[in-house]
Each structure stands twice: as C-alpha cells, then as structure tokens.
C-alpha cells in the first residue's frame, strides 16, 4: 500500500483518569476504506478510544492524527472542522430527546460551523428536507420524520443515530456498540446499513462491538446495490483484493491483539479467545 495519509493514526496514546488507566500506549493506523473491529471486556477502554479519535477526550501522552492533522493539542473551536468530517454513532444513539427525528438528523448540517456555511451557500430549506429524508431512507426509516426519539424502538434509535452521523458524508465513521442490546435480526439489519455506507462511499470505519457476528459480517460480506442486500465476498484468491477488515482486542486500556479474522480464530491467549467464534 502507498503511503497515503492515514485517516486515523494513534501514536503511543495514553489516557488516565486519576489512578485508572483508560488507554495504555495505544498505537494504530486506519486508512481510507479500511475497517477495524474492536472487541474487549466492559471498561477495557473501547469507548474512550473512539472518543479520543473524535477529539472528545484529550490524551495525557502520545499523539493523535486525524486526516493527517495532529489534533492532540487543538482547541475545541478548532476541532469542529475535523469533527465535521467524522460521523459518530454513540452507544445508545445519543439522540436529542427534545427535538424530533428529522431535526435530530438535520442537526449537524445546521450546527457544524463549516457545514452550515457550505450548506447555506448552496441550499435552502427544501434541500435540507430532502437530505434528511434521503439519510433516513438510507437506513430505511423514511417514514419516521415527525416522531420523537422516545417514541421509537432501540433499534430504530440506533439507525436514526447512523442517519445523523452519515448525513454529513463523513470520511470516517465511528460506531460505538451499534448492536448492543438488540436482537440478532435487528443487529444484522444495522450491520447491513453500516456495510452499505462503507461500500458506497469507501468510508474508513472503527467499530466497537461485543458480537463476533458483527465482525464476521464486516470482514466477509459486502453490500450489493443490485440486489439491495448483503452478500458474501469471494475469497482473496478470486478477487485479488486484500482483506481490509482487521480485528483488535482490548484489555485494560491496551490493544492485546491485532489481526485478521482467521488469526483471531487461531489465537492462543485465553483472554483473546473469549472473543472468537463459539462453535
């Protein structure tokens, strides 16, 4: 692979809260179109890692680069420009209860300073409505515009969260436990939406999850626009393409495993083995 600038680059990042270590010398790189699936026990630092990538928490040591820019010491005001190019799905969706779903999805377009300017220059209210509708249709929720987040199910809230994250057409998507607490069918639907987003726009993806199945789908499936469904990717030998999904396992703030799905299956470490497929 050429030295294209990494979308996300963690260089020896550590974060501490008092005596507890949230991230412990974490280093990795993520390039356009690539995916990272992050497994780990509760409290192993997965969410902190995602928040650090969006500049929501600051590292105590080490440096973080996003889109080639060092964001370690940027001020909040300077970070908005970077965040305008990042989509973030929070654990429970992170939707604003006080406004309806359409306004939630429109929120980044109207509030991200850089996007707002761009948006107001070329568009007006009609195109805002169209874009909201388009984003919600993408996650198959085109009919819920007027509802409030409290009136829809957990799976729908998660999908609205995805719509809100991708309406800005970000180059980097961060999914924090997109399927936690959902039934297998709803979970698979959500992963299908994530795959669709990744294939359509070649987005770099970081995903925290507890479900092995999520990682497996991300690694071995792709979205087929013709059948509008997901299908298995033929093995590398046929396509000539390299595996672009890697698996990380975190434990107490450290990344203790990096590798492909097959390497995860073959891992010897007892902690890492907890996250492989149970047969």
């Amino acid at each position: 692979m050429e030295e294209a600038p990494a979308v996300v680059h963690f260089d020896d990042v550590s974060i501490r809260y008092g005596d507890t270590v949230a991230l412990d010398h974490v280093s990795f790189k993520l390039h356009p179109g690539e995916s990272r699936i992050i497994f780990g026990a509760a409290g192993s630092g997965k969410t902190i890692l995602m928040k650090a990538a969006a500049g929501l928490v600051k590292p105590d040591s080490g440096r973080i680069f996003v889109f080639g820019q060092d964001i370690t010491h940027l001020k909040e005001g300077q970070l908005y420009e970077i965040r305008a190019r990042i989509g973030f799905l929070f654990q429970e969706g992170g939707l604003f209860d006080s406004i309806n779903i359409a306004d939630n999805v429109a929120y980044p377009l109207l509030n991200q300073p850089t996007l707002r300017h761009k948006f107001l220059e070329n568009g007006h209210d009609k195109s805002l409505h169209d874009r909201v509708k388009e984003a919600l249709t993408f996650v198959e929720l085109g009919h819920t515009l007027e509802k409030y987040p409290s009136q829809v199910s957990g799976g729908m809230r998660r999908r609205v969260g995805i719509a809100r994250a991708l309406i800005t057409e970000p180059a980097l998507m961060l999914y924090d436990s997109p399927t936690a607490g959902l039934d297998p069918i709803t979970s698979n639907n959500i992963i299908a939406v994530i795959l669709k987003e990744r294939e359509t726009r070649n987005t770099a993806t970081l995903m925290v999850t507890h479900r092995y199945q999520d990682g497996h789908l991300m690694a071995k499936f792709r979205y087929n626009p013709d059948s509008e469904n997901i299908e298995q990717v033929p093995p590398v030998a046929e396509t000539g393409k390299h595996q672009r999904t890697r698996f990380y396992v975190m434990n107490q703030g450290r990344i203790v495993f990096k590798g492909s799905e097959e390497e995860l299956q073959a891992a010897e470490d007892p902690y890492v083995r907890k996250f492989r497929r149970r047969s």
Binding site: L56, E76, R83, F88, F90, Q91, E92, L95, F96, P108
Partner: peptide, 11 residues
C-alpha cells in the same frame, strides 16, 4: 445518555 458528547461531536 451521551447527548452532551453528541452535541460536541456535532459542532
């Protein structure tokens, strides 16, 4: 419910 973080993430 992470709405305050979401607010920051959304500018």
């Amino acid at each position: 419910s992470e709405q305050i973080d979401a607010m920051r993430a959304l500018g």
